[in-house]
Design a binder for these strands. Structure first.
Lengths: 211, 211
DNA sequence: GACGTTAGAGACACCGAGTGCCACCGGCAA
DNA sequence: TTGCCGGTGGCACTCGGTGTCTCTAACGTC
């Protein structure tokens, strides 16, 4: 991630920096993503056209697609990097810790955002969990996450990644994580890590009290 | 519905084939859905245009949309009815059975298809779980299911439907059910009910052996 | 300083999904 | 006949997404 040339910023930089609408620097992609997030938050995903985003980002429709691929992609930032990080965390987990706790730990750590990034994260997740079109698109992204987790569980258990248990662990933990995100987003209280740990706790215990 | 004139062939007779399970007469919507399923299975979801489906169904593009709403909808059949059935099963569950088993039971029963319907179900589910566009769309449908389950759990537990526990039970049980569908579809062995019960069993026990 | 090369950008044309509108056609009641 | 009405087809339009062409600015190299 070391940017070479002085003021050069790699194409996929997340905001983190204040840097509001107008001023320059930040790469075309970052500018597009910022404009998109701004407009989606204000008017709703469906209401905003690519043309508008491009205009606000100071570029053209065609260039928008060259950088972000699709309208939905504008919201997700560097999600591939996020998935890769989760995979790396799982790979780094020792065999001394049990499978389920390892997955839980990786999730919590992969979602340990810096305080400064939380506002952007909130805006992103609010859109993803709220707007039907983005909610739909999310399934495709989640599939990548599930794949990573299933592969890990499969390796640890000596099963095929497509077997029931690995797939089951992957999809249910991810469902739990998403739900934790959801309630964290709804209420202003508590940290994301707390919400994740509570959800994972329930899952690991098989919902005691409901059986 | 009932086409009247004796030898009159309604504008939409499917191909030359005498029509499969659908027994022939069956309303415009049914004809459209059959044509769509046929074409999607043969050429893939993205490769088929609405125009083609309409042509095979013997109707027009415009009428297609009047009946099914969207391209993805053509695959889902009467899913709203399915969700309603799940809701009814949950409502009918007595308070003597614990919450989790009640949810499991409702899922199993709601997915207890007649032997004759299995081939169509398989084709449907294969598309939904395989084609990215349909996979994406599925999330929106699943949200309805989650809503129903969350409401039930909330009522039983005296919590808000948006609280963590109800949401968590809803999303994880649904994830488990979907995964069960997935492996049932992949392997030719075993019944759907079996797969569901195995998945739910794992979930209820908190994945023993992985903790 | 003139040259060719190349990456990024805009302009344009095209496709397909989805929607609104209007016109038509058949049946049905007054 | 007249008028209503539900189902339908045709048409035009918007918008997301893609392929293609051209332009331009930057960067060497001679």
């Amino acid at each position: 991630m070391s940017s070479s040339s002085a003021a050069d910023v790699p194409p996929g930089t997340l905001s983190a920096v204040p840097l509001r609408v107008g001023d320059g620097r930040g790469g075309t992609r970052a500018r597009i993503e910022r404009a998109a997030l701004e407009l989606f938050g204000a008017q709703g995903f469906e209401q905003v056209t690519i043309e508008e985003i491009a205009a606000v980002a100071g570029t053209s429709r065609r260039t928008f697609f060259r950088h972000v691929g699709s309208k939905a992609d504008a919201v997700w930032g560097d999600f591939a990097g996020h998935v890769a990080r989760l995979a790396a965390l799982l790979d780094a987990a020792g065999d001394d810790v049990a499978v389920l706790p390892a997955v839980f730990g990786a999730y919590v750590e992969a979602n340990d955002y810096a305080e400064a990034d939380l506002p952007v994260l909130r805006r992103r997740m609010r859109l993803i969990l709220t707007e039907p079109a983005l909610q739909a698109h999310s399934q495709v992204r989640y599939a990548d996450v599930d794949e990573v987790v299933a592969r890990y569980v499969a390796r640890r258990c000596g099963q095929a990644p497509s077997a029931l248990l690995p797939r089951l662990v992957a999809t249910t933990t991810r469902a739990a994580a998403t739900t934790a995100f959801e309630v964290w987003l709804a209420g202003e209280d508590g940290s994301l890590a707390e919400a994740l740990r509570t959800a994972f706790g329930q899952l690991a215990e098989g919902f005691p009290g409901l059986r």
